[in-house]
Computed example of a mutant assay.
Amino acid sequence: MEASEVHILSARTALPGEPLDNAALARHFGMDELWEQWVDAFVGTRARHLSVDLGTRRLRSTLADLSAEAAAKALADAGVGPADVDLVVLGTATPDQLMPATVNVVADRLGIDGVPTYQLQSGCAGAFQALEVGRQMLRSGEYRTALVIGGELCSRHYDPDADLARLDSAELVNFVLFGDGAGAAVLTTRPAPGTPVVRRMLNRLTGLNRVPGQIVEWTGALDRRFADRSHIKEDYKAIEASVPVMSREIADELLDGLGWAPTDVDYLLPPQLSGRMTRRIVDGLGIPAAEEVSPVAAIANTGNAMPFFQLEEVLPQLAVGDRVLGVSVESSKWLKAGFALETV
């Protein structure tokens, strides 16, 4: 095996609390049955898991809690102990604090010390950035095993007392699209037959002179209810127009770079915006033979956790020779991200 080959040994995830379906969400915010039906039909997300208890307004779990849980499970599945981890990377848009960095809190809980740690601040592309940082450091030959984590606490930006009937669409959509969660993967350059090798990764900013599609203020509604501007806004119309096109460009670039045909892809891990949007994206990717891995309808958009939920589902299904394509678009400033895996 060449030193540059990086294998994914395991991927595991963590979710907070019980699933909150659209009916329960509608009851809490005093919305009628027609609103619930609109969410089901036009958004396509059935449920989500929230760290914030909407009834008590209390935070039940932090990003560090969820990340440490997912990472501990990933390490156990990989048969890797804390002393075997050479570096830790976390991608998130919603860290618990400015300092200490959440990645260091997680490492401490896992008993990991004396290694490089990195925390990347980004939206849906952050998990791919974290995977790429881990991969490139392993390829340097100085390190052999990396723990890569991605997660979000989107519910910190919920106002449990919001009057949804008075919100504009740019704010309202966020109450149904997003959920909380974390995931982790163990990467290694050690020989690992039967595991997927990362063949190619893509991380690229493409937002020059473009208005952001999503803006999230540093503090959420639970932290600063007195804010005189919206803490989170999403231009869903721009996202609907741009993400399917960008997704096709990402897939085409990854395939072209490897000399793979669309029919060579066995499993497709598409962007997980919502049930409805993901369906539209997949239809436009032109990879009809691949098996789609899309948990978004059941757990909502979990941001940087989502690629790990997809990997957790697909890894046990892989046979030698199987090829996997992962695609993601971050609408904040229009980032392209993706990876191509092949089981050896």
Rank of each mutant, 00 (worst) to 15 (best):
M31S: 02
T302A: 00
D32F: 09
K73T: 12
S155D: 10
A165G: 14
G114Q: 06
A107S: 14
A162I: 14
I215G: 00
R276Y: 10
L254R: 09
A24T: 07
E5R: 13
E253C: 02
A251F: 12
A340H: 02
D161R: 15
L311A: 02
Q129K: 03
A14K: 14
E18M: 15
S51T: 09
H7N: 07
D235R: 13
V296G: 01
E2I: 12
V103Y: 03
A241E: 04
Y158P: 01
P307G: 00
A192T: 07
V324S: 07
S328F: 06
Q119W: 11
E291Y: 01
A47N: 05
S122Y: 09
A47W: 14
D53E: 09
A70T: 12
S10E: 07
E312G: 10
N209L: 12
A305G: 14
V216G: 00
L164C: 06
L138A: 03
R229H: 15
G134E: 03
L318H: 10
D256E: 15
I8F: 04
V211H: 05
T343N: 11
A170F: 04
A74G: 05
A297M: 07
L205T: 07
P82Y: 08
Q97C: 06
G91Y: 13
F175C: 01
K336P: 00
S61I: 01
A221Q: 03
V216Q: 02
H157R: 12
A130G: 10
L34T: 10
A93D: 01
S230M: 14
R248L: 13
R276H: 05
L208K: 05
L222V: 08
A83H: 01
L59N: 02
R46G: 00
D168L: 06
Q97M: 06
D65C: 13
T278I: 03
P271D: 03
R229G: 09
R224Y: 04
T219P: 00
S122F: 13
H231T: 12
A192E: 02
S332W: 01
V173Y: 00
D264E: 10
V115P: 05
A26V: 10
H231V: 15
W35E: 01
E249T: 13
F42M: 06
R225K: 14
E18I: 11
A130D: 06
S230C: 10
G55P: 02
L268T: 07
L9W: 10
A192I: 10
A300C: 01
S332Y: 01
R279F: 03
D228C: 13
F226H: 11
V173N: 00
R60H: 07
D108R: 15
S122V: 05
A290F: 10
T13I: 15
L131F: 14
A101W: 00
E291D: 08
G259N: 12
R57H: 12
G207A: 13
A3I: 04
S331R: 00
T102W: 04
Q37H: 11
N301R: 04
